[in-house]
Write a protein that binds this DNA or RNA. Structure first.
Lengths: 353, 353
DNA sequence: GTTTGGCACTCCATGGGTATGACTGCTAAA
DNA sequence: TTTAGCAGTCATACCCATGGAGTGCCAAAC
């Protein structure tokens, strides 16, 4: 039903306008409002017909029979992906970001916290920041175990215990001897090193000299990446009180759900960590998840903008903005990206421990 | 008007009962309810007369003409100080506290956070924990400067910059030479030391060997104490969503005020730091502040239970519970004291860095 | 075929009016 | 000093009528 082809130019414009108007007013938007405020060159009756089709297509919904329309998840999605004009940082915003980082702390925890305050202040929503994990555990042991000719188990042990264990499926048969040789090579080279200091490049070099396949190399990399992330990640959030301004959170149940999520590190982490899970995150590219795309049902009326940031070879973190679905996506994406870029630069500059 | 003497036995019982009932029901309590639920041996009319006098005495207030009575700040205060039966920890609570600390982290930040979660869970309110400040700056320089024969300026400089500067008034004339000699002695003995490791006893010894007066010794001590505290204190809060259950926070403005306070480290700090300001805090002695006693107007409908905790000679922190004035004081005081005691023991046991 | 004006219909939000009930304070008698 | 009784007050809940916003549909116009 939802299909690119069923959005001709006029429908697209109407959809975009409905979303835009709803984002600004928080009121369901009706055909007359649309015809009056934006000169569509057609009458409200025509708009009514189009809106009925947009509703049939799943882009709009009606809160009740005699109300205007409100965007659905799919409506917002289409708006964000195809209809919304991109925005770049306003002069004022970028100045405020610059000022903030000019006098920012040198301590990672503090920087992360200050960044969430900045971002929540600028965005008027809840801001979240996930710090790059800084794992100081010592490497102990790694073992690639032969399970069958096409599957293996990779185990990484650090001073904190088993830090990663994952089953790998090979596309070609492997020999137990090859796995043992690679394990030995890794162990002899890495013994006693701090997890944090083991760069992907190191792993690649060892794998190569041990004659491991590209596939094995990737498996080792991923296992080590996982082992690093086992460390409790540092995460901060700020600006929950901003959400009180939004009419959608005047319902106490929704508010409670949000507050619980903010206080539970774990849920908060899950919310933003997806951003890290993908392949290499594209630099400072903001990413939006809307309503049910977020997973948890309590968040079905929320959206999240996430953007990764990175510094040096020390790892990658995530900034995020959580708010009602009815959020100014383009602006928030620009804000998040800009802040992420500045944060990365700042972290590089001050050479945080 | 408010005076011990105007509380005869029956008035005291009625006041206590009103407070108790209101704490449990959150509804203004009327004379008939009182007569029926608690057998006072007198009729509701008599109780009405007594309540009218309690209101005249400032212990009770009426939300509006035809409503029951609600305790005033003074009413709560009298209840807490003189009428309320003390409680000790229930078996269940003390087990939960014990269990929590048995498997608690060894990392100070984590312990503090876990403690706030525990305490907010047990109390059903917002819990706050202030960690003992742990200053790792290096000592650089101290100077006692002669301003006049009776006044001096003491400056302490650490690797973080000027950490303390205070004017002292002497009760007797002092000589510039004496101040210089003392300054030199301190600098030569303390050069390069970490602030945290400089014990009061060290300072005393140096002062004594330099022939300084008791007054000077105290001035030096205080300057160093101030220099240590300059470090941003670590503070954590948890359980804001608990407050949503309380009817007094269904008003969005009040809720927003609370959320702002929770997110602003500074305000939060001010709220609990009073506990440290007094003389030596009595060990694990819980302390209650009610409504306007707290200072900030936004908190005029809240109460706070604070209790200091200490471990070794490493410093002192504070646990606190913030909630509506209508809180079960005796229970919360027992909870806070018990948790503070266990926290102190835990910190001693694991010898946190 | 598309667009438009007109019209009937639906549903929510609002406001006034009224009933209800939980109090109190007062008075007069015990 | 206590008590019963009673009149008075005020917040709350509820009902119902009204108004308004918006839709869907149809027949006519383009």
């Amino acid at each position: 039903m939802i299909d690119k082809t069923d959005l001709d130019k006029r429908k697209a414009f109407i959809l975009a306008t409905v979303v835009y108007e709803y984002i600004n007013t928080a009121e369901p938007v009706g055909s007359v409002t649309l015809a009056q405020k934006y000169n569509l060159g057609v009458s409200s009756a025509t708009i009514r017909n189009e809106m009925a089709e947009l509703e049939a297509g799943g882009y709009l919904v009606q809160p009740h029979t005699s109300a205007g329309r409100v965007p659905s998840d799919a409506g917002y999605r289409t708006y964000v992906d195809r209809l919304m004009p991109a925005e770049s940082l306003t002069k004022d915003d970028s100045r405020r970001i610059r000022d903030q980082f000019r006098e920012a702390s040198r301590e990672l925890t503090d920087v992360i916290e200050q960044t969430t305050r900045l971002l929540s202040g600028l965005s008027g929503n809840l801001a979240i920041a996930l710090a790059p994990s800084r794992d100081t555990h010592a490497f102990k042991h790694v073992q690639l175990l032969w399970l069958s000719s096409r599957t293996s188990l990779v185990v990484v042990v650090t001073s904190a215990g088993v830090a990663a264990q994952r089953v790998v499926e090979w596309s070609n048969d492997v020999l137990a001897d090859d796995l043992t040789r690679l394990s030995n090579a890794l162990n002899s080279h890495l013994g006693g090193r701090i997890m944090e200091d083991i760069a992907s490049a190191d792993l690649d070099r060892i794998c190569e000299s041990a004659g491991a396949s590209a596939e094995m190399r990737d498996a080792v990399r991923q296992a080590f990446a996982q082992a690093r992330q086992t460390d409790e990640p540092e995460i901060a959030a700020a600006g929950a009180q901003n959400l009180l301004d939004q009419p959608e959170f005047h319902d106490l149940r929704k508010l409670r759900a949000i507050l619980r999520i903010v206080e539970e590190q774990r849920t908060l982490y899950d919310l933003v960590a997806d951003e890290l899970a993908g392949d290499l995150p594209r630099k400072s590219q903001a990413h939006v998840r809307i309503g049910h795309e977020l997973g948890p049902d309590e968040l079905s009326e929320c959206s999240v903008v996430t953007v990764p940031y990175s510094f040096g070879d020390r790892g990658v973190g995530v900034l995020a903005i959580l708010g009602p679905r009815r959020m100014p996506y383009a602006r928030l994406m620009a804000l998040a990206s800009g802040t992420a870029r500045s944060l990365g630069e700042h972290l590089n500059d001050v050479e945080i421990r």
